[in-house]
Design a binder for these strands. Structure first.
Length: 667
RNA sequence: GCGCCCAUAGUUCAAUGGAUAGAAUUUCAGAUUCCGGUUCUGAUGAUGGGGGUUCGAAUCCCUUUGGGCGCACCA
């Protein structure tokens, strides 16, 4: 039973004995006493006045008197306006300190025997990870740690988006530009290689657009006379297009070289492309069709769509290339995950799950939750839930995004019978997840209430807002490397590593750089959009990871010294009955941890932990500054300060671990 | 157009409906230097605007302004 519970029960008995009333324990709540008043716990009396029939001040006085008389650990009280501030005895705090120091996993929750799935990262296999993914990964990993500490069994899940038109774009570009290169031959990480080709695909689009615009323009004489005489076949048009692409390349020597022969043969062998070419020719002959849009006439896009169809049919060539490129990408991702220290217990691949969900649709149709429109498409009406009508199956019977999610939710439940399923996904998908949960409720899924969308905001950089659309994405690997580099520079300048071996030093840079990055991204309320300042994050002062890491290292240094001078008998064996205010402040703060951890778990918010551990480090530094440890002549006082240091150091380490951050023993 | 989210010192972040809105950073002034420098103390400075509910509002409601996101038979 913690202190607040004990206080509450004394307040309850005060009401029983003084006023002869039973009150609801829930209206008794304590809060932290403001620094300028004496005491540590404060009871707000306003809401109690209707029971006492007294003014808030009188109520506070009366309860205060009762508590000092009956609760052994309440030594003094004062009432300011309607606030009753309680002072707890030093003996109580010293006992709590000793007890914390002997508790393993202090503050952790009881085993809840419930399973939670935390799904995060969930990358596209054609794009390397960027800054936004880092926030996602760190959040997911940390929330998983926090839930585990709260007593849940946690599955860290990664749903890999490894299929779809976007993958085919990369594959097509690889066929046309790749020239057989591999991560080894190009010396690129696998995900970077795939990403490069995704960009190259857009390159073809642009080139084609230029040329298609040219060919449909009447001013280009070399082709149009043939059109007018009706002599231009789709094949000839394609040949013309490829010729022009070649000319374009020749006049721009810096351009990436397209394998034109391969491209031409792909185009000529695709019926959809030939049909589209005929459409273009028809338009050139008779350009009255106002709906004709050049942007929609990209042959490369048509090829990518054909490729997706082939993939779905299981075409062996397409599948083989897909397999090969995905293997590269996964290797690249793993390298990054390893580097940033996140891990997963389970992977789902969309290539395996994209067909799921159709049975769910069937079921919903039978039960009348879904309905069919005239064209055969299937919908759900969520107007009662404050949402709109939403498509769940196309008229051709194929799945949409939400269909897959319906299916995967069932799959996950069948696999794990989770109590909660947490999706760490950006806030641009808020609506999607509202719909998902609403549908699951309507379908009567037992787990529907356990679905939680951990929605987080975008990360901006000081150099300007980053948006993938505008191409200003910041690559995750580059950023991490930059952080490690800055950590190294700063640390060297301060001369912290002069006596370190190069191996130790490198490990330290890694710890500091990553710690800075993770702490900075996690200390902010997840749902808020935030600004990441790399320079500020690696500072050793301020609300930063390295500041906290530094405090930990300092504590370890103190404990090493204590050991050297022979104080290593059990630290908790001392007799002391009085505490200095700064000492008590730290102990009070240490006592808050269980509650903070619980709240962080309930709110899925690593920021709670981050802000707590920062305050803890500050409180400790204040103690460190104001009182001497080793110059203390009174041995019980010296030992109790060492014990405070020991417990604080351990708790800093625990908190940082919950954030996925390592702390150094020395620096 | 409709819907959701956000708005707090110069800047970056805090604040279960509770006290004089806290930190960090910046600038200025000082202290400590025992274990360790980057530690500590103090000063300056803010709830976008207007209404309402409440004993009490940064927080809840309405309105207005300014940002972001979403409104695909894309994922």
């Amino acid at each position: 039973m913690n202190l607040e519970h004990q206080l509450s029960s004394y307040v309850l008995s005060a009401f029983e004995q003084v006023w002869n009333i039973d009150i609801n324990p829930e209206i008794i709540s304590f809060q932290e006493t403001k620094k300028e008043f004496e005491g540590s716990h404060t009871l707000v009396c306003f809401s109690l006045t209707k029971f006492t029939k007294l003014s808030p001040e009188q109520t506070g006085e009366a309860i205060g008197k009762y508590l000092t008389a009956h609760a052994p650990f309440v030594t003094r009280f004062n009432v300011v306006k309607g606030f009753l501030n309680l002072t707890i005895s030093d003996v109580y705090w010293l006992d709590s300190l000793k007890s914390i120091s002997q508790t393993t996993n202090y503050g952790f929750g009881e085993d809840k025997n419930e399973l939670v799935i935390v799904e995060y990262s969930s990358p596209n296999t054609n794009k390397p990870l960027h800054l936004g993914h880092l926030r996602n990964n760190f959040l997911g990993y940390s929330v998983a740690e926090i839930l585990e500490a709260n007593g849940y069994k946690v599955i860290r899940n990664n749903l890999v988006n490894d299929r779809g038109i976007h993958i085919c774009k990369s594959m097509l570009a690889y066929i046309l530009f790749g020239n057989g290169e591999t991560p080894e031959s190009s010396n690129l990480k696998g995900d970077k290689l795939a990403g490069k080709h995704y960009v190259l695909f857009n390159n073809i689009l642009l080139r084609e657009n230029v040329i298609i615009r040219d060919t449909i323009s009447k001013e280009i004489q070399s082709i149009n006379p043939m059109v007018e005489s009706g002599q231009l076949s789709p094949e000839e048009y394609i040949t013309e297009l490829v010729d022009r692409l070649e000319k374009l390349e020749r006049s721009n020597p810096g351009m990436d070289k397209l394998d034109l022969n391969k491209y031409k043969s792909l185009l000529l062998n695709d019926q959809c492309v030939l049909d589209e070419a005929q459409n273009i020719i028809n338009y050139i002959l008779n350009p009255v069709d106002h709906n004709f849009k050049v942007e929609e006439k990209n042959f490369s896009l048509i090829l990518a769509q054909s490729m997706l169809l082939k993939w779905e049919e299981g075409d062996s060539q397409v599948r083989e290339l897909w397999q090969k490129m995905n293997t590269w990408v996964y290797a690249g991702f793993e390298e990054t995950y390893e580097k940033i220290g996140v891990k997963f217990d389970k992977y789902y691949y969309e290539s395996n799950t994209y067909l799921l969900g159709k049975e769910v649709v069937e079921e919903g149709l039978k039960s009348g939750v879904f309905f069919t429109k005239d064209n055969g498409s299937v919908w759900i009406d969520l107007k009662e839930e404050g949402l709109d009508e939403k498509l769940v199956l196309r008229n051709d019977g194929t799945s949409v995004y939400i269909t897959q999610d319906l299916g995967t939710a069932d799959l996950k439940y069948n696999d794990f019978q989770f109590a909660k399923s947490i999706y760490v996904v950006g806030n641009e998908q808020d609506y999607h997840f509202k719909v998902l949960q609403a549908i699951m409720k309507k379908l009567g899924r037992p787990y529907a209430d356990g679905i939680y969308h951990l929605s987080y905001g975008m990360v901006d950089l000081p150099s300007g807002k980053m948006k993938s659309r505008e191409g200003t994405v910041v690559d995750a690997d580059d950023l991490v490397n930059e952080m490690l580099q800055t950590a190294e520079t700063n640390t060297r300048e301060l001369g912290k590593v002069n006596d370190f071996s190069s191996e130790e030093a490198n490990k330290l840079y890694q710890t500091l750089g990553l710690g800075a990055l993770k702490y900075f991204l996690l200390k902010v309320d997840p749902k808020k959009r935030m600004l990441f300042d790399p320079q500020e994050s690696v500072q050793f002062q301020g609300n930063t990871g390295p500041f906290i890491q530094y405090t930990h290292a300092r504590i370890r240094a103190i404990l090493r010294k204590a050991d050297e001078i022979g104080i290593h008998t059990p630290l908790w064996e001392f007799d002391r009955i009085e505490l200095l205010p700064v000492e008590k402040d730290v102990i009070v703060w240490l006592n808050k941890f269980p509650q903070i951890l619980k709240e962080a778990g309930e709110k899925y918010s690593p920021a709670e932990i981050a802000n707590y551990v920062y305050e803890l480090a500050k409180e400790y530094n204040r103690l460190y500054q104001e009182v001497s440890i080793f110059n203390e002549a009174h041995m019980p006082a010296l030992k109790s300060r060492l014990l405070i240091s020991y417990v604080t150091g351990n708790l800093i380490k625990t908190c940082m671990k919950l954030l996925g951050i390592d702390v150094p023993e020395r620096m």
